[in-house]
Amino acid sequence: MNDVAGVAVLLQNELGEGIVWCEREQALYWTDIQASTLWRYRIDEGALDHWLLPERLGCFALCEVDGWLLLGLASRLAFFHPASQTLTPITEVEAQQPTRINDGACDRSGRFVFGTFHEPADGGARLPVGSFYRLNRNLSLERLSLPGVAISNSIAFSPGGERMYFCDSTTPVIRVCDYGDDCGATSEFARIDDAHGEPDGSIVDIAGGLWNAQWGLGRVVRYTPEGRLDSCIEVPASQPTRMALGGADRSTLYITSARLGLDARSLAAQPLAGSLFAAQVDVAGLPEPRFAGPPEHVIATASS
Rank of each mutant, 00 (worst) to 15 (best):
G246L: 04
I192W: 04
D32L: 05
I174W: 05
V235P: 02
L52M: 11
A150T: 04
L286Y: 08
V129T: 09
P172H: 04
V283D: 11
Q270R: 10
D3H: 00
L62K: 04
E226F: 13
P159R: 01
S36T: 07
D49M: 14
Q97I: 10
E162Q: 12
L286C: 03
P225N: 12
A278V: 09
P199D: 13
N212Y: 06
P294A: 14
L57D: 07
C59Y: 03
S152A: 13
M164N: 04
R290Y: 01
L53R: 02
R76M: 10
L38S: 01
Q280R: 15
W51E: 13
D193I: 05
V235Q: 05
G160E: 12
R265A: 15
I255P: 03
T37E: 10
P295R: 12
S202A: 14
R259H: 04
F112D: 07
L267Q: 10
R175C: 09
L73S: 00
V129S: 01
I33M: 07
A273P: 02
M243H: 00
T241V: 03
L127N: 08
V93C: 11
G124W: 07
F189M: 09
G261E: 07
D66A: 15
E55S: 11
G124P: 08
G46S: 15
H50G: 11
Y165S: 14
G160C: 11
E17R: 01
Q214K: 09
E162C: 08
E94R: 05
G285N: 05
G58R: 00
G58V: 09
L276V: 10
R126D: 09
G148I: 05
D49F: 13
V235M: 09
G285Q: 04
M243L: 10
F277A: 11
R259V: 09
L217A: 06
D194K: 06
A185L: 14
E142W: 10
V113Q: 02
D3V: 12
H50A: 13
L53W: 00
S238R: 14
L262R: 00
L69T: 01
Q85P: 06
G58E: 05
S154I: 12
E25D: 14
L210C: 09
W30F: 11
A269K: 09
C177E: 05
L253E: 01
A105R: 15
R259T: 14
E55V: 08
D32Q: 02
V7W: 06
T224E: 15
G110P: 07
R242T: 10
R76P: 11
S202E: 03
S266M: 11
I90Y: 03
L127A: 11
S257M: 09
Y165I: 03
N138R: 09
T86V: 14
D230C: 09
T224M: 15
R137E: 11
G18Y: 05
V281I: 12
W215D: 05
A74G: 12
L217C: 12
